[in-house]
Design a protein around this nucleic acid. Structure first.
Lengths: 138, 138
DNA sequence: TGTAAATATAGACATGCATCTATTTCGATG
DNA sequence: CATCGAAATAGATGCATGTCTATATTTACA
């Protein structure tokens, strides 16, 4: 499971900002997994709770208490966030504490970054080549 | 449909960075819709093709040509990206051109931004209050 | 006006996923 | 060692969604 996480961080690190050049299929698949994890309201709230926590750590029991959802459901969402490398967890005594992986969040933010200047342009670049489908079926 | 788009941009504008404070349910719902749209490899690639295009515009026919997917499938993905305010479209003659809405992408990026300093902390803040569930059932 | 080309829409279908209940695992503690 | 509490896992279920084919819509043009 840890291998999976590193894999994704590496893909994020190697993916240029969306505004710079088209993602290839592999990059898109990896990045999409992370965004998909963010594509749920409950997970977003969980992530924001952990990310905004002063000490950096949040006990699962605190998170469970913040929602009207069953404990297994929260556990499931935490697992998803962990699998894509947005959170890590550590067990101490009876409790499990989750904390943010800032690198992953930072890479995502960079991916969505706009080129320096204002809307719709920036210093004109050469046209990025459109990848052609390997073989158009049907 | 345009109302929907503006609605979402407004929600994004009003949502603090995840690292700053927990999102409320409404913010999370809105933001999640946008991230969900990004949570598909094909849509990510489409978005990156449009976002990285020099002129800012891409004809649908060019996008369709870049994938081994049916034309209606591409059309569907474009619609999703448009509904969440990431793209706009304009018809000229027989062709429809899509372009990026940089504001939306920028808001998303800001949402994921890390606090100035390095990993795991930043200047210690007061603990953000955890929202308590209105009524814990079951 | 009628035909062709470019997109969009409709509807069907299979897979994915969020949620639940029930159960298991693991550590603390009597 | 038995039990309790915290969290994770297993399995079921209903709804969401990505894809397709078929059809409609729109524009250009002969």
């Amino acid at each position: 499971m840890k291998g999976r996480r590193m894999e994704l961080l590496e893909i994020l690190e190697c993916s240029p900002p969306l505004t710079r050049e088209p993602l290839d299929a592999e990059q898109a698949a990896g990045v999409a997994r992370v965004f998909k994890a963010l594509g749920d309201p409950v997970r977003l709230r969980i992530l924001s709770i952990v990310a905004s926590r002063a000490g950096g750590e949040v006990c699962v029991c605190d998170i469970t208490g913040a929602f009207e959802l069953s404990q297994p459901t929260i556990s499931h969402h935490l697992k998803v966030l962990k699998e894509v490398g947005l959170l890590t967890s550590e067990r101490r005594a009876s409790w499990v504490y989750y904390r943010l992986v800032p690198e992953t969040l930072g890479e995502l933010s960079a991916l969505l970054t706009l080129p320096a200047s204002g809307p719709a342009g920036g210093p004109a670049r050469e046209s990025a080549d459109l990848p052609a489908a390997a073989a158009a079926s049907r």
